[in-house]
Amino acid sequence: MAVNKLTPGMIDVDVPGWELEGEVRDCHETFSETPARDAEKAKRWANQLLGRRLVWRKVVERGFEHYEANAIGDPYDL
């Protein structure tokens, strides 16, 4: 079961960004205009907030995507 969730979306009126939920909860404006680079930088930001490097997996639910990272000790956590 994922503990941390990183979701792209609107963090304020007309402000695109990322929301981190789980062990730490925070928001940050978009990092890059390039979607792939934006996602990579968002994962780095989340790792920095969490104080360790986690393995983030892309998840698509009902047409919406987000990233999930497991808790320490989870068999899928590298």
Rank of each mutant, 00 (worst) to 15 (best):
Pro16Lys: 12
Arg25Asp: 06
Thr30Glu: 14
Lys58Ile: 02
Gly51Tyr: 08
Gln48Glu: 15
Ala2Thr: 06
His28Val: 15
Glu23Met: 09
Ile11Ala: 08
Glu23Lys: 03
Asp38Ser: 11
Asn47Ala: 08
Asn4Glu: 01
Ala69Leu: 07
Arg53Lys: 13
Asp26Thr: 11
Gly51Lys: 02
Ile72Val: 12
Val60Met: 07
Glu21Leu: 04
Cys27Phe: 15
Arg44Glu: 15
Pro16Thr: 07
Leu20Ile: 04
Glu65Asn: 13
Arg44Asp: 13
Gly63Met: 00
Ser32Gln: 13
Trp56Lys: 02
Gly51Glu: 09
Ala71Gly: 02
Lys43Val: 09
Gly22Val: 05
Arg25Tyr: 00
Gly22Ser: 03
Glu23Thr: 14
Tyr76Ser: 13
Val60Cys: 07
Trp45Glu: 05
Gln48Trp: 09
Glu19Gln: 01
Ala71Phe: 01
Ala39Lys: 04
Asn70Tyr: 14
Arg53Ile: 10
Glu40Met: 08
Val60His: 01
Pro8Gly: 13
Val24Phe: 07
Asn47Leu: 09
Lys41Glu: 12
Val60Ser: 12
Asn47His: 06
Met10Trp: 03
Val13Asp: 11
Leu20His: 01
Lys41Asp: 09
Glu61Val: 10
Gly9Asn: 05
Gly63Trp: 00
Glu40Lys: 08
Arg44Tyr: 05
Gln48Pro: 06
Glu40Val: 09
Asp77Ala: 13
Lys58Ser: 12
Leu20Arg: 00
Asp14Phe: 07
Tyr67His: 03
Pro75His: 11
Arg52Ile: 05
Phe31Cys: 08
Asp77Asn: 06
Ile72Glu: 15
